[in-house]
Nucleic acid binder design. Sequence first.
RNA 1: GCUCCCGUGGUGUAGUCCGGUCAAUCAUUCCAGCCUUUCGAGCUGGCUACACGGGUUCGAAUCCCGUCGGGAGCACCA
Length: 482
Amino acid sequence: MPELPDAEKGKVVTRFPPEPNGYLHIGHAKASIVDYEYARMYDGKFILRFDDTNPENAQFEFYDVQKEDLRWLGVEWDKEYRTSDNLEKHYKLAEQLINQGDAYICNCSPDVIKEGRFHGKECCCRDVSCGENIDLWKDMILSSTEGTVLRLKGDMTCKNTAMRDPTLFRVIDKPHPIHGSRFRLWPTYDFAGAVEDSISGVTHPFRTKEYELRDECYFRLLDLLKLRKPHLMEFARLSIDGMPVSKRKIKPLIEQGLVTGYDDIRLPTLRGLKKRGILPEAIKQFVLSQGISKVESTVTFGIVEAFNRKLIDPTARRYFFVKDPVKLVVEGAPSKEKSIIFHPTDKKLGSRTIKTGKTFFVPKADMEKIKTGDVFRLKDLFNVKIKEKNDTIFAEYAGEELISESAKIQWTTDDFVKMKVFVPHLLFEGDKYNPDSLETVQGFAEKAVSTIMTGEIIQFERFGFVRIENTDNQVTGFFAHK
RNA sequence: GCUCCCGUGGUGUAGUCCGGUCAAUCAUUCCAGCCUUUCGAGCUGGCUACACGGGUUCGAAUCCCGUCGGGAGCACCA
């Protein structure tokens, strides 16, 4: 990561400010990892701040859910707090603004405000005196009539529309998950974000590029409040080809039943990625490889897969899984108790023993390519020569000698476990939902697969890496990648 | 419509602030070869890029202007 401007060892403070309203996704991972890594790089501090200033959005369960997600990612915070706990401070600062004549109460309807902004016209609420505004403000805190807002006295003719008297506070008469009905007046993002970054000591806050126009407002507010100004920075939002990386796009998919939930393996949510067998370390490497530039780009998920593959390949045990199994009977096959190692290079990963007889199952797709008379090898076992191809394939034993150019095909005996593997594909092709995005592959796995612990990531040879979910005699796999 | 941001190989990124050492990084993809009892991993080699036009300068990916292309904002959501 590039150096931070005006950064001193031991003095950098960063922050990750999620709104507790959903599960974290890879976009959050990018933000939190960048914040966290910069804090570490400079021996600084990293703050987790819940931006829960909208009781309509904040939900009790998600404070903990998001912390769990972050812990899984390996992000550790030095301090944690909620913006909502500082509400009274925000009220004081707002009052200061009103007293200085820099903010005013506005009773206009949202439509009128919008109109005024669009045409650069001030409204009559702007001319009310400070004294009157203070009275109105106090009323607003106590009796909170919905529809009344506090606005910054900005510049209604400013080219930057974010400066045309943005709303600073508004009434939301809904119970808050933490504070119940104690407050009804809540700061907007513009106010709360700037104030919190400053008073919590953050030196280098990051946000995504779409907030760029708000920088001016951010600094204006801090100027007027005579608060310290952090070194605000923006980077491009992460986008992945065929995957929705935002709460806005993910939520409707769940509501419409187009995905199975927040942990659907087609989704780039942290829970989805975990279920699929993507390691937190792979997410971290991926995110850091993207950097913090402002260039908008669409990455293929293949990059994440590549990082993940490098991480899991050395430790993933190899097993046999036969997709669309076809029965193979081998005449003259010697009965064996064959010990087969779990990993081609790392012997420490051990081995399993498989008892073989004359009956095997092999993948249909492989058998379609093989003709009568051909010789192939049951991988790690022996060679076999095809005699007759029907629904069942008949073959004869063809020796132990390794023939380098013959195909090596995975197999199971008749002592197998039935299993289902869910294979994720791109959720979207262009803008269109892909109805075939979740493929179910059925097949037989060797018996040992039934004893694998839930959560272990293995490789089915010639098939791909799979995370196993093993519950109550039901063996399921989630395909990570090739 | 207005405003702002962005534009380096097939993809993604480093380099742009402070012009020369940058035809130039790293990763991934693809292709070829080696290795391998997996279509996995590893190893070797290869392809291909500074959006376009003009200006400033001895010299521009880097600074300025314009064109084109992409994205975002114009909320009482963060």
